[in-house]
Amino acid sequence: MFRPIATQPDRPITIQFESQTIEASRDDTVAAALLRAGILQFRYATAQEPRGPFCMMGTCFDCLVEIDGKPNRQACQTIVRNGMVVRQQPAPVAATPDERAKP
């Protein structure tokens, strides 16, 4: 479990993640705010497997979430804003499983 260390700065920002309300500091990234709140699964990848932040520096693309209706935003590269609505990023839906042509 991730937890904050020692002295607590102000957490004046609130954001939504799915049904959860989360408090955040003014300069938190969305990823940091979610991780601090104990959320590890941010999205579902190609094979429908859950993923979460890996590199925290914008190079792995595993922290993708939907932010205020816009899909595939990198949570580790986005600073929180009061009232932000964040949702898990689902894997794209193939028309039928067979049509996801994998050799």
């Binding site: 190609t46 595939n72 794209p92 839906v93 193939a94 028309a95 049509e99």
Partner: peptide, 9 residues
Amino acid sequence: TEKLDQQLT
């Protein structure tokens, strides 16, 4: 582009 839900038949 990145992958999207199937929409363009």
